[in-house]
Design a protein around this nucleic acid. Structure first.
Lengths: 331, 331
DNA sequence: AAATAGCATTCATCAAAGAGGAGTGCTAGA
DNA sequence: TCTAGCACTCCTCTTTGATGAATGCTATTT
């Protein structure tokens, strides 16, 4: 369907466009391909017919289409060796043995964002995937307690509980014990329901202040379920890309970054390095999202990089690969 | 220095400009002030000389200067009664008794941001103000522990500690006990130093695996100090204001929102509702920052609202006041 | 059959020019 | 002290034309 020379041409156009963000003209490729501009124009015309290239207006140079990027990523691109500089910056993180996993992830993703000038994102696993593994309660004053909620995916969160003084610490402990006995293993987003229909009736029998306690714990869990755990780095990075030279486009993407639901939807379930170009992703058709799922020490989540479709694919993929491997290998 | 009629005129101009974002012409105020445009022009000219008004170009209408806004806020503006609608939305939060304080603050600030289409911000007190009040450790697996760090300002954070199995849980407990004995009351950002020079030598004597334990706790605290606790709402809101119709300005402010140091610097130490117009704030000269400090249940922090200089001062101030009061009164 | 040279054509970009309109400042008179 | 009137400034919008970078197509060469 596509000749060897056409592939070569597509490669040159994609890579040139990634570098400069300017439509690529036939003339500019004469030397490299050692033929006249007319010849190249003919080939370009074929590539356009095949849906690989587009024009911004009738007499403009060519720009890769989504299909063109896709073909490039699937068939042409070879991942580049990481540069010494890139590795060096990342190593400082991975070789620091005293950092705990979550910090390693956070910092390495910050660095990736800085290295690439794209926006990066860490996303904990969703509350439907996290199962309750343990609840602990630590009293810190007469009427204030901290509840520690720990999930099987290794996520830990602390929540305040304020409880009137009539409730004895013993009653709290009993409640916690019951919760631990009855609903450990339940997905976080189902805990509230279970709490209501299974735990509530039981504690009502055994515990005097069951109303207050039920409410308190209900809040602990319902909040946990709503709060997805994520962290973005370099939100403003992607705005520096020339495709975002328009106030409306910027507003549009910033308000998407602002929107929890939108961001949560970036979560990835496949394991490798996955690339979603333009309309292939459900976030924003002007960007490419490169994501991977990681799993280490019982913790699980998604790492994503959001950049222009004109992304340095051959650099981003090995970078993400490198981070994923180092995270999963453990420090 | 300023006549009564000039004050009246300034009021009209400021309020009109706040509403429309268009320079105000002399003609448009004829009816209201019941005199000719020429008269108004003369007065405007005086107000300009007094530094209260500005022109965008030589034959344009007038726009309030920073000094003009300041005069308006200090001498002219009367806070408006909150509308029923506004109060209603906020009440749903404050009347929900089962919400803990931090959630009440978070949600009410989200609502303010939505009501005003400005950007809002909650800022915990800085690590130099937070003093260590207690450390607790909860083991969750053989080699993993959760450290709970609690400060006198009521802030609680949990950190992972990964520790090789040779370290006994008893050794950990002893270390925690020592820390609690020796450095409680120390400002968080000085804990690391104290840990090194006071605790380290002591645990070196008593505890076998002191090296590992020292490192672990060192990380717990150094991280805590770096992480300022803040939460923004409606980052994209302010971008909708007509003053941000320019890609460069948007990029500029978004990258400031992105910058931890910048955001931290918004922290307020004064107690009332404080207004910083344009260059009066050290965040961005195109915006006004309205802030207040809150203090409740031992928790302390700053609530800020970031909007255009052309802000609805007479609405924002009572809104913030209302939230502050309700937070401090307790639910 | 494939490659190329040549040429008409399209369109973005930029600068200049002009019309229209919204303002102002100033002056002279009420 | 106020106001009518007028000259003037400058923004905004549209038009125009020049320039140049591309393309597509066709006829010719290899």
């Amino acid at each position: 369907m596509i000749t060897g020379r056409q592939e070569e041409l597509l490669k040159l156009i994609v890579e040139e466009y990634i570098k400069t963000a300017h439509p690529v003209s036939s003339k500019s490729l004469c030397e490299t391909l050692d033929c006249s501009s007319a010849t190249i124009r003919n080939e370009m015309s074929d590539l356009e017919e095949a849906g690989m290239l587009e024009k911004t207006h009738i007499s403009s140079g060519r720009v890769p289409s989504e299909k063109g990027y896709r073909y490039y990523v699937d068939n042409i691109m070879r991942p580049k060796e990481l540069t010494g500089e890139d590795v060096l910056k990342l190593q400082t993180i991975f070789q620091n043995n005293s950092l705990v996993l979550s910090d390693v992830i956070k910092k390495s993703v910050e660095i990736i964002s800085e290295l690439t000038t794209y926006t990066s994102l860490i996303l904990g696993s969703s509350s439907s995937e996290n199962k309750l593994s343990k609840v602990e309660v630590v009293p810190i004053s007469d009427s204030r307690l901290i509840a520690l909620v720990i999930t099987d995916k290794g996520h830990v969160e602390n929540k305040d509980i304020v409880i009137p003084k009539i409730v004895s610490i013993n009653e709290v402990r009993q409640t916690v014990e019951l919760i631990n006995k009855m609903i450990v293993g339940t997905p976080i987003d189902e805990v509230s329901t279970k709490l209501e229909f299974e735990v509530k009736p039981v504690i009502a029998k055994y515990i005097k202040q069951h109303e207050v306690l039920y409410n308190a714990f209900y809040n602990v869990f319902s909040d946990f379920a709503n709060e997805s755990i994520f962290k973005m780095s370099g939100t403003s990075n992607i705005l520096k890309q020339p495709e975002f030279n328009d106030a409306d486009k910027i507003r549009d993407i910033v308000s998407k970054f602002d929107n929890k639901e939108m961001v949560k939807a970036i979560e990835e379930d496949k394991n490798g390095i996955n690339i979603y170009i333009g309309s292939e992703n459900n976030f924003d058709e002007n960007v490419t999202v490169v994501k991977t799922r990681y799993k280490a020490d019982g913790e699980e989540g998604t790492i994503a990089l959001i950049g222009p479709k004109r992304m340095e694919y051959d650099r981003v993929i090995p970078l993400l690969q490198y981070i994923k491997e180092n995270i999963e290998r453990g420090d």
